[in-house]
């Protein structure tokens, strides 16, 4: 049963990650390779506040959202004038920089040794210290987060993001402050990614930089691409499929080492085939081109 709660916890975390990236990629049309950086900044902010400053989980999580949203402007502002491939490369650069800082800034982040001893959340005396309770926590927060993102996506804010995606020049000509809107969508996406990071940190009680590498950013992007971008359903389909894929491979009775590598092959093959035959993904509204 614990394994079921474990799976559901990760489905909750990756739902938040994929839906927040969907706002940037699927709605605003900005192909970003740095979502794992926001995930990691949220995890580390939460962990550091809890272990170094003695903060409780929930205040630390809120602070992590704000910190990560503010730090997202470091990539958003310089990228405003960049288009297409150059923008993607800029996000890649940001991802690499964040990982490098987490890995090498030993005095602050403890480098490759990571951060241990992250306490369990306590809510009004109720300690979240079992997989089932973590599932309740992660599940509740993700439902609230998904609800907020859905409200944003269906609002005039979501509509103007789609207009930017379709034709940025036309959106400017309608009087839309496209630069500010891009900064805001990055900040919103970063804040929700930080929530995932904070819950992950508390659940695993140990984090290190290798959980937030480029490969993780590509995995989150794969979820959005395969499931489909630009609506409220595609990323959730992608999340369930890709998070449970290792379990599906178990039915093939494959050794774990091979299954792990085969998973990467399957992700890559799925993306190539989808881009060729169904570029909008399984249930997407937006084709990548």
């Amino acid at each position: 049963m614990n394994y079921l709660w474990h799976m559901l916890i990760f489905i909750s975390l990756y739902s938040l990650l994929s839906m927040s990236l969907n706002l940037v990629v699927g709605y605003a049309g900005l192909l970003s390779l740095c979502h794992a950086a926001f995930y990691g900044l949220g995890a580390y902010s939460t962990a550091l506040l809890m272990t170094r400053s003695g903060w409780g989980f929930f205040p630390a999580l809120l602070a992590a959202m704000v910190i990560t949203a503010l730090l997202s402007s470091i990539i958003a502002v310089p990228s405003l004038r960049l288009r297409g491939d150059f923008f993607v490369l800029a996000t890649l650069g940001f991802q690499v920089i964040v990982f490098s800082l987490l890995y090498n800034w030993d005095n602050f982040t403890n480098g490759s040794y990571g951060i241990t001893g992250i306490a369990n959340p306590v809510l009004f005396g109720w300690s979240v210290d079992t997989p089932f309770r973590y599932f309740l926590l992660a599940g509740t927060i993700s439902v609230v987060g998904l609800g907020l993102m859905r409200a944003l996506a269906l609002s005039p804010f979501g509509r103007v993001l789609k207009a930017i995606r379709e034709n940025e020049v036309a959106a400017v000509a309608l009087g839309k402050n496209v630069a500010l809107l891009k900064i805001v969508v990055f900040a919103v996406a970063a804040a929700f990614a930080a929530v995932s990071g904070g819950i992950f940190a508390a659940y695993t009680q140990y984090i290190d930089p290798t959980s937030f590498m480029l490969s993780e950013a590509l995995f989150i992007l794969s979820i959005v691409i395969i499931g489909g971008a630009g609506n409220q359903v595609g990323p959730l389909i992608g999340t369930v499929l890709l998070v449970t894929l290792p379990e599906m491979l178990r039915f093939l009775r494959m050794p774990d080492a091979i299954a792990s590598s085969l998973r990467q092959v399957i992700y890559g093959a799925a993306i190539v085939l989808l881009m060729r035959f169904r570029p909008q993904g399984i249930q997407g509204d937006y084709k990548f081109d």
């Binding site: 509509r159 207009a163 379709e166 034709n167 020049v169 036309a170 000509a173 509204d285």
Partner: peptide, 9 residues
């Protein structure tokens, strides 16, 4: 001149 409609909307 090239209209620039938001096609997916």
């Amino acid at each position: 001149q090239d209209i620039r409609i938001f096609g997916h909307l």
